[in-house]
Simulated scan of single mutants.
Amino acid sequence: MSILTEGNIKIGAAIETKEEAIRQAGEILAEQGYTSENYIDKMFERETLTSTYMGNLLAIPHGTEDARDEVKTSGLSIQLLEKEIDWGGNPVQLVIGIAGKGDEHLAILSKIAIACSEEENVRTLLKAKSPSEVLDFFSEVAE
């Protein structure tokens, strides 16, 4: 099972709040079979411990350390938001949900961080019109 498919990607998501964004990130992971529904609660727990805002309009919500039992297989969900939302005082328009089996999420996180390290790359990604364009952008992450 690929960690990222077109079914994991939402473009122009009409999200108003950080909470809505986290919930949808987790719902995509659960619906696509990467995690149990309980993983969503673990994503909210993680956010209360430490913000998953990464800079460059990017947030990467993911579960807590003890959420590993809720992960069936590593996966990503990607939401390109219609407009910026407030993420604890920071603007976010790209939300990438991560579920990592074992320690795989660390490798996935570093690849995403590299791909999104330049704000111009993120802005280019936000112009994507189709899930396949997003897949192309992240093709190196998904390998």
Score class of each variant (00 low, 15 high):
41 D>P: 00
41 D>V: 05
43 M>V: 03
43 M>L: 04
44 F>A: 09
45 E>G: 10
45 E>S: 14
49 L>H: 12
51 S>N: 11
52 T>R: 09
54 M>V: 08
54 M>C: 13
54 M>D: 08
55 G>F: 07
55 G>T: 09
56 N>C: 11
57 L>C: 07
59 A>N: 13
60 I>A: 13
61 P>Y: 13
62 H>M: 09
63 G>P: 06
64 T>S: 15
66 D>L: 09
66 D>R: 15
66 D>P: 01
67 A>R: 15
67 A>Y: 14
68 R>H: 15
68 R>N: 15
69 D>H: 14
71 V>N: 11
71 V>H: 11
71 V>G: 08
72 K>W: 03
74 S>A: 13
75 G>Q: 10
75 G>V: 10
76 L>Y: 10
76 L>D: 10
77 S>T: 08
77 S>I: 05
78 I>F: 05
78 I>G: 02
79 Q>M: 15
79 Q>R: 05
79 Q>E: 13
81 L>N: 08
81 L>A: 11
82 E>L: 06
83 K>I: 02
83 K>D: 11
84 E>W: 07
84 E>H: 09
85 I>H: 11
87 W>P: 00
87 W>I: 07
88 G>R: 12
89 G>I: 02
90 N>P: 00
92 V>C: 07
93 Q>N: 06
93 Q>V: 02
97 G>N: 02
102 G>H: 05
102 G>A: 03
102 G>I: 01
104 E>M: 04
105 H>K: 03
105 H>A: 01
105 H>I: 00
105 H>L: 00
106 L>G: 04
106 L>Y: 05
107 A>I: 02
107 A>D: 11
107 A>Q: 11
107 A>T: 11
109 L>S: 05
112 I>F: 05
112 I>G: 06
113 A>V: 05
114 I>P: 00
114 I>W: 02
115 A>R: 12
115 A>P: 00
116 C>S: 13
116 C>I: 03
117 S>L: 00
117 S>H: 06
